[in-house]
Simulated assay, not measured.
Amino acid sequence: MAKADKAAAIAELKEEFQSSSGAVLTEYRGLTVAQMKELRTTLGEHARFAVVKNTLTKIAATDAGLDDEFKSLLQGPSAIAFVKGDVVEAAKGLRDFAKANPMLVIKGGYIDGKSMNAEEVTKLADLESREVLLAKLAGAMKGSMANAAALFNALPTQAAQLAEALRAKREEAGETADAPAAEAAAEAPAE
Rank of each mutant, 00 (worst) to 15 (best):
V121K: 01
A64H: 06
S78L: 02
T62M: 02
E38V: 06
T122W: 00
A173Y: 10
M1T: 13
L166Q: 11
R29S: 11
N117G: 14
A160S: 04
K92G: 06
K37Q: 14
E120S: 09
M103W: 09
G113T: 08
A125Y: 01
A118P: 04
T55Y: 05
E175K: 02
R130L: 10
A188W: 04
A90M: 08
L73V: 12
D63F: 10
G113I: 09
G22L: 07
L133M: 15
A118F: 01
A181C: 00
Y28D: 10
P156Q: 09
L13A: 06
E38C: 03
S115W: 04
S21H: 10
S129R: 07
A100I: 14
T157D: 10
T57V: 02
G93V: 02
P180R: 01
A98W: 02
E172H: 00
M116R: 09
A159H: 04
Y110P: 11
E128T: 12
K92M: 03
D126P: 07
K37P: 00
K37L: 12
I106M: 13
E183S: 08
V132C: 02
A179I: 06
L155T: 14
K3H: 06
L104Q: 08
E38H: 09
E45I: 01
T32F: 03
A168P: 08
Q35C: 11
V105R: 13
G113E: 12
V83H: 00
E172S: 03
L39N: 07
L151N: 10
D67L: 08
V121P: 08
A148F: 11
L74K: 04
F152P: 00
K114H: 05
T122H: 03
R170T: 07
A173F: 09
V51G: 05
P189Q: 06
L133P: 07
G108K: 02
F82K: 00
A150S: 14
I106A: 08
I111A: 01
A7M: 14
A159E: 11
T157Y: 10
V51A: 09
V51Y: 05
K107V: 05
Q158G: 05
Q75S: 15
D67R: 00
S19Y: 03
K107F: 00
T41P: 00
A163C: 09
T157M: 10
A168V: 08
Q18K: 15
T26E: 02
P180H: 02
G85V: 12
G85P: 05
K58G: 12
E89D: 13
A190K: 13
M116I: 11
A188K: 13
G65Y: 05
L31K: 06
F49P: 00
G113Y: 04
L13R: 08
E183Y: 03
M103D: 14
G76D: 06
L66T: 09
A159Y: 06
V83M: 09
A2H: 06
I111Y: 06
G109Q: 05
K92R: 14
L13Y: 09
A79W: 03
A90D: 09
L124Q: 04
A173Q: 15
T32S: 15
L66H: 04
D63G: 12
V24A: 03
L124W: 02
N101S: 09
A81D: 00
A182C: 03
L25G: 01
E119I: 09
G85A: 08
V33M: 05
D112A: 15
L134I: 15
